[in-house]
Amino acid sequence: MREKVRFISDGVECVAWHYPGVNGACVIMGAGGGVTKEPGTDRFAGRFHDAGYTVLAFDYRRLGESGGRPRQILRMGEQFADWQAAITCAATLPEVDPTKIAIWGFSLSGGHVFRVAARDARVAAAIAQTPLADGLAAISKAGRHQKPAAMLRFTGRGIRDAVGALGGRAPLLVPLAGEPGTVALLTTPDSLDGDRALNPGNQYPDWQQEVAARFGLRAPFYRPGRDAPRVRCPLLVLVCDQDQAAAPAAAVEAGQRARRGEVVHLPGGHYAPFLDAHEPAVDTELSFLSRHLLDHPRTEHPAVGVGDFSRRGGLA
């Protein structure tokens, strides 16, 4: 049903699962921050493939099976470059029509979707699922579920990690999620659903659920929803109204500002599309893909060139 493929991004090897499809269209999938391709995409990738789509689900560099050292570091500029390389790879797959490439991401990668779709003309459709559209808004909302002392400890660890990186030290890691009062990237009630949603029964024991603490210092400055007005392709923004981790109001605003944006609301928290809201989420996304990739295919090949992914705001 799927095979490993490899592609090069800035000289670093990225590893992906390739599910060959039959309808000519391809969905490229990137998982949430610090999440590898299996726990982050398997459940949706299988459904897209069953519907006839080729799927290319990849690990960002420094994560999972992809190369790059040091490990467990999230750098926006690098991840944007990995998206571009994945799109280039998808366009060369023998069964794929390069005019029918869609991108899909959730959480942090859902935020990337805004920026990638705005700056890469090869993207024919884009799905942002429970996206991190505005880092400042998300942290302000999520901070209500953390204790002040723990926030100070987290900031201190982030500073130590960033300073240590200048001297070549190994990253200081923090868990992706934890109880309020612990030092973790997220401590919202719905963030604690992450393991149940993505890794039930420890199905993916090799997934290292930690990232370098320095990411927490950069996250407030990441506001990809601002790129939504420049997205020219159809854009689906799937929002969960009780999302405590990713500021759904910012995602709704971004979707409404997109030229061809569609905003769909579902009940539940950040991981609801992997849990109780899975069926309506899949149905919504498959309907969107069918309408924009199959029913009304693009008649011209997209421009080969891509937009400016220069590193801004210290996010690289």
Rank of each mutant, 00 (worst) to 15 (best):
T187V: 12
D120E: 06
Y204P: 09
V55F: 13
V231P: 06
P229W: 07
W17E: 14
V35P: 05
A197Y: 00
A121R: 12
L294R: 06
L63C: 03
A25I: 09
P248G: 13
A81H: 10
A117H: 09
I28R: 00
C240S: 12
A316N: 12
H112L: 07
A125I: 03
R144T: 14
V211S: 10
A277K: 02
W83H: 01
R257Y: 04
G216L: 05
R153W: 08
L192C: 11
L186Y: 12
F114Y: 15
G11S: 03
E279S: 15
R144V: 09
V22L: 02
V123F: 05
C240D: 08
R169E: 15
E300D: 12
R218I: 07
N202W: 00
P302N: 07
A31H: 02
V5Y: 01
Y271M: 13
G255C: 04
P220E: 01
E210W: 13
D193E: 14
G67L: 06
L152N: 04
L56P: 02
R119M: 10
G201I: 03
D283I: 11
E179D: 14
D120Y: 06
P189Q: 11
R223Y: 02
A86M: 11
W17F: 11
A90S: 08
D190W: 09
Q203L: 11
G21M: 06
L63Q: 14
Q203N: 00
G178T: 01
D50L: 13
D241M: 07
N202E: 04
L293D: 09
A281L: 07
R62T: 14
P175D: 09
M1R: 04
A121D: 14
P98R: 11
G52F: 06
Y19S: 09
V96Q: 07
A25H: 00
A246N: 09
F114M: 09
S287I: 05
P94E: 14
F44L: 11
N202G: 03
W104Y: 11
A91S: 15
Q244A: 13
E210P: 01
